[in-house]
Design a protein around this nucleic acid. Structure first.
Lengths: 232, 232, 232, 232
DNA sequence: TATGAATGAGGTTTCATTCAT
DNA sequence: TATGAATGAAACCTCATTCAT
């Protein structure tokens, strides 16, 4: 709200050393972009740090002090970028999710069999979500959603409803092509993604008790839906 | 586990005034059992109230003041039953979950086809968990697990590992009896319960955006695993 | 708002020493009143301390920390009696002013010449307001009034409008009796009290530069209105 | 007093760009005087803005950010003109009051009857103080005086003591000429100006409850001192 | 055993001041 | 000279915990 989600990584700009030499020579625009870049860097550092802390401790137990320390900025600096703790949390979710959604929606239309498409999606999910901070973010949203309706709404609107719609389209295509037998599956695309969600939650909670081979689980699940395959 | 198992309702209850004079007349045992009963009642009220509050707000954002108010006791009273907020939370999970597990493990061995058994379990789950406080408790554990390893451990040990083991046994039986085709399913019993978990989470987060017919979804899922049925 | 302005000084109650002996023997009511008395004492101490601090520094520059320290209580204790700093300030004004107004309005109807009555009032004012904390309170209200409309409103309603009305009645009586020549004075009773107000403000601001004999000034002012007197 | 007396408007103004290239062509003196003029303008804007803000919120509650915004300068610019917030406030009072005092003291010696002179003064006061920012400044000084002895001292020295002295002289003249009967009035010139002060305070605090016709009140007050008049 | 007033550490937020550009 | 991003001390307020009653 204060700034705008300048998530775009400032290109071609390096944080110059503080020495007086850095000031000498250099176009005005360069200097300006340098300043702006520094600000963007700081903002990115705050976002990064906040994400880590919120994931590790949840919203209420996270201290702005710790976020500031981790981001290497002063406490007050956070308030130059975010109105308060709550809106920082809400923006955070947007900042992290929006680029992912954008990347996915601008992807070239997938080709191949429906199974291949779903597999591509699953593989993408495993690489980009399941074993990254974004996976933990999903758990965080599950955790804090009820207290942050704005977050739950946003997540539903941007991710869940789109994902469900996409999955339903794929399932219907699969049914039409005869790849999927279960016609009713189109009514509950949730079934298609349920194991993926479970994998994400499992990793945060029970990984140390019993590691879960998410990739293999998803493959087994797809076998269930598309029928068993021969090759690995 | 730390405190007394005051779950048993003690009989012979009488309400006495607090003053020392009130001690005159009345059997000691009656008074004692009275006190014990009152204490048990209070403890139960605290547990109940704490559960509601923790579910509604999460651990960190819950105030002991609110728990006390909801339970109808003074704040100090909570400390007569629980060491502190953290251990109250940890015990709470045990207190709520243990009886459920006990009931399930002492159930008469199920009979009928594997599908019938799984359906019985699913129906039970829908009735006893999905649309009750206990469903929210699951989400609470997902939310707070990373900050309460003891809770995650307990939940894994008492619920998850047993549930997984039970499901695996059922799946293997289903495979042996030819009811289930997918042999690999036994390696990931999580797949069997994933939609149930998703249903629970969906209800807390997205019910108002798009209500989910959990019962029907589970039926479709079972059709996927056991093959489509003819009758409803 | 939290408690109620229990300004009445708790009668016949002494703050007992903390030693265990103090608990021994004593009726329930006595103990209760003791507790209540302690609370009232603390509240009074907070009010007293807050008044001092607000007068000395103004609203914004006063630290609750200092109030607590001066009152001999912990910071949190203040919040058991007042919702927040603002409402503490607003209640404070009421707490201090209400008893004064009550005392004045329940006074026996004054007798004697109008001049005598005004003199009695002036003398009362000098004794009870001009050289006490309440005088400083008037300056405080002048200072903070614009930022605290509630305070200005209250002060106007309870003190100013009543005072103006009372003065007008007196002036009209004086005119009717021939003690006052200036008929127009009844239109501006403010003129009658203006020097008293000035005296109060002068004392806080300029006393050390040039002490002002308020009593004498008021006498000269009355001479102006009622005509010169012979005796001192 | 801390900074330069940049009140004198320097002539020969020109606007130059900041870049080194811009220095080519153009007299040095012109540039310098331009800068000085700009600086003086900025300083005046800051003073103006600060006055508004301090009057509206008091010293402690006023933010330099708001002053800067209102003055149309950056926050840092304020520090080029004033050492810090406190000394800005203290200088402010001087800056606003000094020209008023200067104008009054360089006025041609008043003529006519004493009443006429006092009336001229009162009329001047009503026009220049009572209904302007300067009236609010008086209330501000009353409000902040105790926390800013330097301000109270300055105000006493420059305004109050001179005003009192002037009034006393006028009163003594009035007594000598027989216009004023009350000889003791010379001992308390405060009485003469008290209603004017009250009018100023009344307008800030109670105008919306009960508007006060200050001009008429002052006339009635003068009637009291000089004896009733016949004409309007 | 039960109470709830009192505590004070610790959290969020503000804002005067600095300083690299 | 002018800027405004950054700082961090210091303010307000909350709430888990204690303890006299």
């Amino acid at each position: 709200m204060t700034k705008k989600p300048t998530t775009s990584a400032s290109p071609n700009v390096r944080t110059t050393a503080k020495g007086p030499a850095a000031a000498a020579g250099g176009e005005v625009t360069a200097i300006a972009s340098n300043r702006a870049a520094r600000a963007a860097e700081r903002r990115a550092a705050i976002v990064e740090a906040a994400l880590e802390e919120f994931i590790a401790r949840g919203f209420a137990a996270t201290r702005l002090d710790d976020i500031a320390k981790r981001a290497g900025v002063a406490k007050g600096t956070i308030y130059l970028h975010f109105k308060d703790k709550e809106s920082m949390f809400e923006e955070l979710v947007r900042i992290v999710i929006v680029p992912v959604v954008e990347r996915l929606t601008t992807l070239p239309p997938p080709t191949g069999s429906v199974r291949e498409r779903v597999e591509a999606f699953a593989s993408n999910f495993l690489k980009e979500v399941a074993n990254t901070r974004r996976g933990d973010l999903v758990r965080l949203i599950v955790a804090e959603g009820p207290r942050f309706p704005a977050v739950a709404d946003f997540y539903y609107r941007e991710v869940v409803s789109r994902g469900i719609a996409g999955m339903r389209a794929l399932i219907e295509l699969g049914i039409a092509r005869g790849e999927i037998q279960q016609k009713n599956l189109a009514r509950f695309p949730q079934i298609l993604v349920a194991p993926a969600m479970i994998a994400v939650i499992w990793q945060s909670l029970f990984a140390r008790h019993a590691p879960l081979d998410a990739q293999e689980m998803l493959r087994v699940h797809l076998d269930l839906i598309f029928g068993e395959r021969r090759t690995t």
